[in-house]
Each structure stands twice: as structure tokens, then as C-alpha cells.
Amino acid sequence: MTENEPVPEQRSLAAEEPPQDPPDAAQAAVWRNGLTAVTALLAAVLVLRGPAELASVHWSVRVLSAALLLAGFALLVRAVLLAIAAASAPAGQPVSALTPVRRLAVVGLAVLGATVLLGWLAPAAPTPAKLIQLTYDHGIICGLVSLEPDGYVTVLPDPGQAPNRITAKARTLVPVAAVHGMTEVGVCEPPATLPTPAP
């Protein structure tokens, strides 16, 4: 063995174990394009459907759903920005790891999915009682109406209505035979002219 020949035992371990290659820029570009398309599609669906999907649920569910939507879209936008940065890294330089992009995308989609399930499974808000303006032999009375007991129309006061000439002050029983008409109203307000009571 000559003096110029390398000794096998002295070779560097670094040459035998090359460093792992960073994620390829093409893979980052795929993630960038896919996440951008998914985020844009979900945003378009949200804009087109509007708040009508959650209109029938309790206000607390609507507030929670709005917070979850904001959080989910924030995570997806963050994932898109990281993917853009990874895909646009200069040639020859290592590309940022895609692990944070994957995690943010999965968590963001999971949050949006939970929001959809919440909207589906949440109990409906109680339907407000309808106010009825009832015209009968002795004038007009307005309030919450029930058809019990038999032969009578029961008019109940609504605490949310301002007191006036036609707002029911107490539980009132009106015989069905004395009723001339019933109209559903949003607010108990006396009409411009009141009918003349029967003698």
C-alpha cells in the first residue's frame, strides 16, 4: 500500500450517509394549489348559502358557529401561505418542511366539518308565538290566542307589547260566535279607526 492511497477506515461517515432531501418544490406547489382551491370553494359556498342555514337555531349556536368558521378559515389561509412560501423557494435552496402545512390543513378542515355538524345537530330555536288581532262584538283585542276551552277564543297578554287600547291586559275569553275576524300581526297597534262596539 502506497502512502497516497486512502485508508478505508478513515473515510468520513458523512459521505456514507447523505442528508435527507427536503420536500420537493413541486410537492409544495401541489399543496399550494389544492389548498387554495379548497379554501376558495368553501368560501364561495359560505357566501352563496349565507346565514340562512343557521337562521333557525339558537343565537348561542350561531355565535359559536361563526367563531368556528373564522378559526377554520384562518387555519386554511395560514396553510396556504406556508405552502406558497415553500413552493416559491429559490432553486438550490432547501424548501420548508410541509408538515406544518399538512397539520394546519387537517385541523382547519376538521374545524369547518365540526361547524357543519353543529349546524345540523343543534336544536332549533323556539318559534315565537304569533300575535293575533281579534275583532269581535265589543271591539278589537290583540294578544296571544288559544282555541281553548271549546266554544271560546282565549286571548292572552304578551309582556313584550306596549300597553294600548287593544292590547290584552289579562286573560280574556271571547265566545266564538262573537268573533268577526282574526288577523296575524307583528305588533299590537290599534288601527286608525276602531269598529263601533255592538250595543
Rank of each mutant, 00 (worst) to 15 (best):
L98A: 06
A89S: 12
A124C: 03
P94M: 09
G113L: 12
P126E: 12
V80M: 08
L117Q: 02
A110C: 07
I132Y: 11
L109V: 10
A91N: 09
V61A: 08
V47K: 11
A87F: 07
L112K: 00
L70D: 02
R103A: 13
W59E: 09
R102W: 15
L48W: 15
L76D: 06
L69E: 12
F73D: 11
A52P: 01
A110P: 05
R49L: 04
V111A: 03
A125I: 03
I84F: 08
A86S: 11
L121W: 07
L76M: 12
R49M: 10
V57H: 01
L109Y: 05
W120S: 07
A122S: 04
V95K: 10
A97Q: 15
A105T: 05
L117A: 14
T127K: 01
L46N: 07
T127L: 05
A67N: 00
P90Q: 07
R102F: 09
R103I: 06
L104Q: 08
A125C: 01
A83C: 08
R78Y: 10
P94K: 04
A83M: 08
G108R: 06
G72P: 10
A74S: 03
V47R: 09
L76P: 14
A91P: 15
L54G: 03
V77Y: 08
A86Y: 08
R49T: 13
A89F: 04
R102G: 14
A124K: 08
L76H: 09
T127A: 09
S56D: 03
S65R: 02
G50I: 01
L81T: 11
A55H: 02
L54D: 03
L48D: 12
L109F: 06
A124N: 01
G119P: 00
A89M: 12
L117K: 04
A122L: 04
L46F: 05
L104F: 15
A89V: 15
L70Y: 03
L98H: 04
R78F: 06
V106L: 10
V80T: 15
V101L: 08
L54C: 00
A91R: 07
L112R: 05
S60E: 06
G50P: 05
G50E: 03
A67Q: 02
A86T: 15
A74D: 01
P128A: 07
G119H: 00
A71T: 06
A85F: 02
E53V: 13
L76Y: 11
F73V: 14
V57Y: 02
L48N: 09
A129Q: 11
G72A: 04
V107Q: 13
V45R: 13
L68R: 04
K130W: 08
T115Y: 03
L70K: 02
A71D: 07
F73H: 07
L48K: 09
A83W: 02
L69F: 09
A55N: 03
L46E: 08
A85K: 15
P123V: 07
L112W: 02
L68H: 02
A97T: 14
Q93W: 14
S96H: 12
V106W: 15
A122T: 00
